[in-house]
Write a protein that binds this DNA or RNA. Structure first.
Length: 232
DNA sequence: GCGACAG
DNA sequence: ATCTTGTCGC
């Protein structure tokens, strides 16, 4: 077994393999980690929720990853963390997590408050191999995690009702992999999918609670602002 | 061959 | 992800 240095990303990859460098290696890692996903059913009453997001430089290949922890009760900020870095993998639909996970894990490591739930920018099980970013981060941190995406990766759905809170099952290959949820009346719905240790219903309820006024949950909005500033 | 394809 | 102009509405 090859000994790894403290500078690579071995801690994000079972502590054995180095970070994948090819599409084939990434697929193998997904295939391995996928089995560690734990399904949950909620209902949970998280005291804190974390939003994660990454912003990319226009001219550089630099990026900034941010995590913002909010107190669920009043949406006040409990903790934040921002780190700058480089994409760890090219962008390939279905392998998106390999691009941002290292930076996001770095940011999570710098938190003082351990969040009760992770809300990711992207999908959880609504993924070709049922292992999107939210599932990946959930497994690596073993924290409840789900994703709120702005556009679809996989699946089909029936038209979503107009009122806020209306939802439609996101179905792929005959199975429900998430929900298309209307967080604001008259606004395009978002894609909610479970990642790890949480149920779809609790995830949708939480998303609605966190999006009292805008399309995206406040966790995502706060993290988005933070990483954009972090890009400087 | 053609279209789809998280961020 | 990021660029990109005006426009409608509170």
């Amino acid at each position: 077994m090859t000994r790894v240095t403290a500078r690579d990303n071995s801690n994000y990859c079972s502590g054995v393999q180095p970070w994948p460098r090819t599409e084939e290696e990434a697929l193998a890692v997904q295939d391995d980690l996928r089995s560690r996903v734990v399904s949950g059913n909620g209902p949970l009453a998280p005291a804190t929720v974390a939003g994660l997001d990454v912003a990319y430089s226009e001219d550089d290949d630099r990026l900034a990853a941010a995590v913002v922890v909010l107190n669920t009760a009043d949406l006040s900020v409990a903790d934040t963390a921002v780190v700058r870095g480089r994409p760890a993998f090219p962008y390939i639909p279905g392998l998106f997590a390999f691009r941002e996970v290292p930076a996001l894990m770095d940011a999570l490591d710098r938190l003082t408050v351990r969040p009760d739930v992770l809300i990711c920018d992207g999908h959880g099980l609504a993924h070709p191999r049922r292992f999107g970013l939210a599932a990946h981060l959930g497994v690596l941190t073993d924290l409840p995690a789900f994703g709120v995406g702005k556009t679809r990766l996989v699946g089909d759905w029936e038209p979503v009702g107009e009122p806020r809170g209306a939802r439609s099952a996101l179905v792929d290959a005959g199975e429900t992999v998430g929900a298309v949820l209307r967080t604001q009346a008259g606004v395009k719905p978002v894609f909610v999918s479970v990642g790890h240790r949480i149920g779809l219903e609790p995830a949708c309820e939480l998303t609605l609670r966190l999006a009292p006024r805008y399309r995206l949950p406040e966790t995502t909005r706060a993290a988005d602002r933070l990483c954009r500033d972090g890009l400087r």
